[in-house]
Design a binder for these strands. Structure first.
Lengths: 245, 245
DNA sequence: CCATTTATGGTCAGTGCGACTATAAAGGTG
DNA sequence: CACCTTTATAGTCGCACTGACCATAAATGG
């Protein structure tokens, strides 16, 4: 940042790409758009767009998220999470020109009707992992976003961002199981969550049937805690050399 | 990323900023450069520079790190760590023009002679926290980098990046104590580190005096483990509401 | 020789967690 | 209705890890 040599740089386009996750019907879904033009015409891609001259990347990401999903503003409302992931800047990641993309991961509670933005061809929720190769380096971005979300589930109360305002512990557990692709013991999960102050707050007297079967479950709200101490570790699939997956 | 409207964006300058840490004389130090021109002339700033047209941000960061410190290439050599932090893109973060900066955190083992790059005014190692306000939003970047490093010390073997190729457990513990600004019980630290497979490897028969006093300590090398399971948690300064610092 | 310093080894109690069992409360089915 | 299935909830047991210690070993400096 020393010495602004006007000839030392060429113009870069700066964009945002969004990995928007939700849990629907016990499966992790991602919001994808179908590309209408070359390159990668007809392939699925992450939603995104240019950062406008008077915007930060965060503002642009919130705007794009609202455009694509019709959801309220980025960080304000309850049960919505938008977080910067990292920046992808390989010189050849877009064959047309130099594009530097700031990637974001977003978690939304339930798939509202997808509101196709003006410039978005078609946006759809697709199960994570099912669509073939995505356009550009979006497979990598999506995988990185998934890794980040999995990791943050361990030491933050982020999972409640996937849940409606009121939820049962069974629903919260299913969110964990869906994202981690692992099974959790209901009793132990309950003990852990309730033992972590600020994770969830009980709604006195409220109860609801979850799957139409079984005993009705008590309802909870997301608590104020942002970090979990101690963390809620995912089951360790032990690998031989001290480097569990 | 739908529809490339050539008029929808203005050129952005893309730069990298580096928060380069080291531990020297039991204190955490940061590599800073003194700005020679406005704005913020005379103030300290993080080293950095433009991303060149054929570079990724990672390549640019490695190049800048090499230029400023004279150290070998970015990710290759032992005991060197370079990691993307996040991107800062507030529209007014540079008063002259629109600059989007990809920030990196770097850890280097010992302060080699600072090799002032051609464009860098003067680079110096300064104790973390001592210099007044940095230029631009570099205070925030530096604080974010420090947070990241502190957190990564818990669940990765990153601390060995601050150590020379061969080190004693006392030296490694001092690295933790310096970065975390906390005291650790030597015996418990030892038990934890040696009990984590792949964290460090003993060098049979080797021993060295650390501070000139006391019993000579056995020497160790950095192990192959990248992640620590279970993590080496820093002492919890308990705060009342489930959200320890 | 002795005090000091650092390294290293060990004990002990408390905490958290995985595995498991038991009970409660709903619906479904004969 | 009796009984099974399903889900929620409560509790128990043993293991692993950790923090707080205590003890010993091996160096230096008076």
């Amino acid at each position: 940042m020393q010495g602004y040599d006007k000839y030392a740089f060429e113009p870069f386009a700066v964009t945002v790409d969004l990995a928007v996750f939700t849990v629907r019907a016990g499966r992790l879904h991602v919001l994808l758009v179908e590309r209408g033009q070359e390159p990668y015409a007809g392939q699925w891609a992450l939603p995104g767009g240019f950062v406008l001259p008077d915007e930060s990347a965060e503002t642009a990401a919130g705007r794009e998220l609202a455009e694509e999903t019709g959801l309220a503003d980025s960080t304000g409302s309850v049960g919505l999470h938008l977080e910067q992931l990292r920046t992808y800047s390989e010189p050849d990641r877009d064959p047309r020109m130099r594009v530097v993309s700031v990637a974001f991961a977003a978690l939304v509670p339930d798939p509202p009707a997808v509101h196709a933005g003006s410039d978005a061809a078609r946006a759809e929720w697709l199960p994570y992992g099912t669509p073939g190769p995505l356009a550009f380096d979006h497979d990598r971005i999506l995988a990185d976003a998934h890794d980040r979300v999995c990791a943050k589930f361990e030491y933050t109360g982020l999972a409640t961002a996937f849940c409606p305002p009121e939820f049962t512990l069974g629903e919260l557990r299913q969110v964990y199981e869906t994202v981690w692709a692992a099974e959790l013991d209901p009793a132990n999960f309950r003990r852990k969550v309730l033992g972590t102050t600020g994770f969830v707050e009980a709604i006195p007297g409220a109860a609801r049937l979850t799957g139409g079967r079984g005993k009705p479950a008590a309802l909870y709200r997301a608590g104020p805690a942002t970090s979990l101490h101690p963390p809620l570790l995912r089951p360790t699939t032990v690998s031989p050399e001290g480097k569990p997956s």
